[in-house]
Design a binder for these strands. Structure first.
Length: 595
DNA sequence: CATTCAAGCGGT
DNA sequence: ACCGCTTGA
């Protein structure tokens, strides 16, 4: 599979929080509304505004009172408060409703935010091709072409109709894939509406950046196709800040350094110039991006990597006594605890690391972590309080805390799976399709360095079949979960000689980095005996929250044998079909080696 | 006094 | 591990 022959969609719920509230109170459908949190101060801050209200100039971030001035009929929904703190569970639950539909219909779905999902439709489109459907304009009632900006419905239909006939008759521009992708997305959007009640918009393109960009071209309740031939003329009018990842300081840097306003203006700069100013990696990314090439994979991930609760205490509301801090530690701990318990029941996993974030009056932000040994509100609260107290300059006997605190957050992460009974074969069998690991790359500039390969494995007695058929190897870390879910993308490397790339990463690079990382951890100042457990395989003392990775290390070691066998296959054939999986070990290792 | 809360990623 | 940046409702 060529990386720029993918079909990627980005689905984005329209003013999601408002729709969630309107689903509960349908009498507000069609009326200008918004959702705000903390209504006592100037009507709270608006975090979602529907399209009816946007017509009046109401915007996200505005105060509720200000919105009322612009639009007297504006209705404000308020975020639920628990213990005096905004609670977003209602929207998380609604999000789960949407993702249930997506996951039931597609294999490769990435939860990008509470209301956004990337879908890799490449395989779905290939399967659909075999059906040789004759699609008509009626299959695309909400579809727009990125290059067609008309507001007149008849014109949309005329131009889209011509385009769809063209690419069904002669697909020389390779647009037929995108057409089929758009067809699938028309259907899933209908399904989402039918099964959840929510409207959404979508973008369909060859990569995530383009899908994300064009999703915003026609909103709400519409979808947009971005073809490769749209790139130049649209990028010529696309402000740098509109590109995902360039909305902040990085984008400002681009504008300043290159004196450009629109992303397309960067085309006149060489790869070298971009890399000199932006760094090797970012420069490479930009150079490819403005030529329509962007290879970031859609990760198969539906679960949160962390669960957190935080609250600001601005101005006079700051926390200046131990009592106040203790109370809020407890409230935040309770929120995290409740969500962790739900997560544990649903996802059979446990968070192993608690991270406390606080901002002091000195304007410094502090982040400190400690292990989670059991889920308990009091444990979370006490751990948090203990960490915060380290920054109190006042006497231990006083209730006064200096410097005052303006923000506290508690985050739980480093999840460890409990599941330990599934066989490897079971896990692998979830993915049944092939992957082609050799990718044609005429257009792709890749700046990743070659990694040295080592051949230092002795035991070569485990065949791939042996490993795959071992039924009872316990799965404790999340290595296999990632593997099973095809979380990663095959690595591409440019070979300057013949302009072909091979998937050629080595497991050894993962090892070397992991090992050095371990050494650092073993001499870290946080070393407290309680936090260590002894690994049953290597008898090393390992920090409890590093066990998932440590277990990955062992599994990776065991599978290195398989890796070596695979490498020889890759080198000797153009494509490789792997039994019962569409992932190579490379793909996993690539991610790991970045840690 | 004041967007706020939340999540992920990359650099070091 | 910790910090800053980015994004989104």
């Amino acid at each position: 599979m060529n990386i720029d022959h993918r079909v990627i969609a980005l689905i984005d719920m329209d003013c999601f929080y408002v729709q969630v509230e309107q689903r509960l109170q349908p009498e507000f459908l069609g009326k200008p509304c918004g959702v705000s949190q903390y209504y006592t101060w100037k009507g709270g801050g608006l975090i979602a505004v529907n399209y009816e209200a946007r017509d009046f100039g109401v915007k996200r971030g505005m105060r509720g009172e200000q919105a009322k001035e612009l639009c007297p009929d504006f209705h404000i929904f308020h975020v639920q408060e628990v213990n005096g703190k905004a609670n977003l569970n209602r929207y998380r639950d609604a999000s789960a409703d949407v993702f249930r539909v997506l996951n039931a219909n597609f294999k490769l779905v990435e939860k990008a935010s509470i209301d956004e999902a990337y879908i890799d439709l490449t395989e779905d489109v290939q399967k659909l091709k075999d059906k040789k459907l004759q699609l008509t304009i009626n299959d695309f009632s909400t579809t727009h072409l990125a290059g067609c900006t008309t507001k007149i419905e008849d014109e949309r239909i005329e131009i889209l109709n011509k385009w769809l006939n063209d690419c069904q008759l002669d697909d020389e521009k390779r647009n037929y894939d995108l057409l089929l992708g758009a067809y699938l997305i028309e259907q899933i959007r209908k399904k989402i509406k039918d099964q959840t009640g929510f409207f959404c918009s979508a973008g369909i393109a060859r990569n995530k950046i383009l899908a994300k960009l064009c999703c915003g071209f026609n909103k709400p309740k519409k979808q947009t196709i971005f073809t490769q031939s749209d790139i130049d003329h649209i990028f010529d009018k696309t402000p740098v800040q509109k590109i995902q990842g360039l909305g902040g300081k990085a984008g400002e840097r681009v504008v300043e350094l290159f004196q450009v306003e629109y992303i397309g203006q960067l085309r006149k700069y060489s790869l070298d110039m971009l890399q000199t100013s932006m760094g090797e990696k970012d420069g490479c990314w930009l150079f490819n991006l403005i030529r329509g090439i962007e290879t970031t994979p859609v990760n198969n991930r539906n679960l949160y990597k962390s669960i957190s609760a935080s609250k600001n205490f601005p101005g006079k509301t700051c926390l200046d006594t131990i009592d106040k801090i203790r109370t809020w530690c407890h409230h935040l701990a309770e929120d995290v605890f409740n969500r962790l318990e739900k997560d544990r029941a649903e996802n059979k996993r446990r968070a192993k690391l608690l991270t406390v974030i606080c901002t002091l009056a000195t304007n410094e932000t502090i982040t400190r972590s400690c292990p989670i040994n059991e889920y308990s509100i009091d444990r979370f609260a006490n751990d948090t309080l203990r960490i915060l107290k380290q920054y109190n300059k006042n006497s231990l006997t006083s209730n006064i805390f200096t410097p005052v605190i303006h923000h506290i957050g508690i985050s739980a992460g480093k999840f460890l799976d409990n599941i330990n009974t599934k066989s490897i074969a079971d896990l692998f069998s979830k993915q049944t399709t092939k992957i082609e690991t050799i990718i044609s790359t005429e257009n792709i500039i890749n700046c990743q360095e070659e990694e040295e390969e080592e051949d230092d494995n002795e035991e070569d007695n485990n065949t791939e079949e042996n490993i795959l058929e071992k039924p009872t190897l316990p799965i404790q870390g999340d290595f296999f979960r990632k593997f099973q879910k095809s979380d990663e993308q095959t690595k591409i490397q440019l070979k300057s000689e013949n302009k072909t790339t091979t998937s050629s990463s080595s497991i050894t690079s993962f090892f070397s980095r992991y090992t050095s990382n371990e050494n650092i951890l073993n001499c870290s100042p946080n070393k407290i005996d309680d936090h260590y457990i002894t690994c049953s395989k290597c008898h090393k003392s390992i920090l409890i929250w590093n066990m998932p990775e440590h277990e990955d290390f062992h599994y990776a070691h065991e599978l290195q044998i398989e890796e070596n066998k695979t490498n020889s296959i890759i080198k000797s054939s153009k494509t490789i079909k792997r039994k019962n999986t569409n992932q190579t070990l490379d793909s996993f290792i690539n991610k790991k080696s970045k840690i």
